[in-house]
Amino acid sequence: MIRTILEKIEAGRSFLVASHESPDGDAMASTLALTNFLRECGKDVLAYNRDGVPQDYAFLPGAENLVSEIPPGETFDVGFVLDAGELRRAGAHLKEVCRSLVNIDHHPFSEDFGDVYYVDEEASATGAMIYRLVKASGRPLSQEVALCVYTAILADTGSFRYSNANPEAFTTAAEMVARGVNPWDVASSLYESQDEKRLRLLAQALATLTVSSCGRYASVAVTQAMYDQARAGAEHTDGFVNYPRSVRGVEVAIFFRQVSATSFKLGFRSKGRIDVGALSREFGGGGHHNAAGAVVDGTLDEVRATVFSRLDSLLAG
């Protein structure tokens, strides 16, 4: 499959690189890793995400050129859709502007929407799969690509704390450091440069902390009113789910984030026994065993009641 993708790169002239909406670290860093690599190959490349670049990842090389709208009338020989799970999460319209689509992902049950389907559930991050392409190409690894690959793996493994922190994650990260990536610079950019708005929003979210009577699941929530009060946005909520996850005894954490007047986006995290990917699919979403999400209609109280009821059943089994 890697050879097929490299042949498409060799034959193509214009490329689009996209990832899922509300991009996390892996989505954004893998997008920019591949974008930088393609440009180094002499290709015309447009990096795209309909939600733009989160401030936390603005330090990555090439971030300043990523666009949130595709110029009218522009088409591409090949479109890469990274870390998306489903085409709709990156944009169903991408099929209309790309002559060929390549799906690169590490989510289970990733939709087979591309002409090339490169999905590896065992990969620690989509960024690690991009590095496989770069390595197989035989081209030198640039500092720009190395920085993006390292950031993708660091972000998606929770700084090497999650179960997807497999041997490839460590060996690839070590290679990136050997090529000149400074771990402190990356950690400082991600974790030591927080926007004041994020902390004010986090203070409100923590006030909503709920822990189940059994102590095995917990949640926090953010509503539109909280956004307004903190003058913050969805881009400031990355990592909020880790706070209920850190409560002693909790096996499943949930983050409820309001996305419209009548719906909430759910972010699930599991410590292992409960497959939150399967749980998310029950709600029309998707993801990994230990990290997943979905969008559910209703008020916060209604959505909470639905999710908590299902978790009570799962944990009782």
Rank of each mutant, 00 (worst) to 15 (best):
L147S: 10
N182L: 03
L32N: 00
H107M: 05
G317K: 00
E121K: 11
D195G: 12
R39V: 03
A47M: 07
Y117F: 15
R179V: 00
Y117N: 09
L32F: 08
H106D: 04
I254M: 05
G12L: 15
Y117K: 10
E121F: 12
F308Q: 11
D297C: 13
S14V: 02
D275Q: 04
D26R: 04
D83G: 05
T126H: 12
S137Q: 09
F268Q: 06
S189V: 01
E196R: 12
K135Q: 13
E144Q: 13
G62S: 02
P140R: 10
S219D: 11
K95Y: 09
V145G: 00
E7K: 13
S246K: 03
R231A: 10
V211M: 13
A27L: 09
H236W: 08
T75S: 14
E144A: 10
R139Q: 13
D115P: 14
G293P: 05
P167Q: 07
E86L: 14
E111V: 15
D275K: 01
A125T: 00
E69F: 11
C41F: 04
G287D: 03
R3G: 07
I274D: 15
R198Q: 03
A146S: 07
D115N: 11
A63V: 08
E235D: 05
T35G: 09
S188E: 14
N166R: 00
D185I: 10
P108I: 04
S19M: 04
T126N: 11
A305S: 15
H107T: 09
F255S: 00
C41V: 03
L279M: 08
N290G: 11
E168L: 11
T306E: 13
G138R: 10
I9S: 10
Q55S: 08
T172Q: 07
R139D: 12
G239S: 03
A84G: 14
E96C: 03
R161S: 03
G79R: 11
A294E: 07
A136E: 09
A221V: 04
D56W: 00
T35W: 06
R161H: 07
N65W: 13
Y48M: 09
Y131F: 07
L147A: 11
H288K: 03
F15Y: 10
R304C: 01
L199H: 12
G287L: 09
A218D: 02
T210V: 08
M28T: 01
R273T: 05
E40S: 13
S309I: 08
A173E: 05
G180H: 00
N103S: 05
E196K: 12
M129H: 08
L60Q: 07
F255A: 01
Y243P: 00
Y48Q: 10
L209M: 06
H236F: 04
E7A: 13
G42H: 12
S270L: 01
K265N: 00
A278Y: 15
G52R: 01
V181M: 15
I2V: 15
S100I: 06
L201D: 00
A187E: 06
L199S: 13
C98D: 01
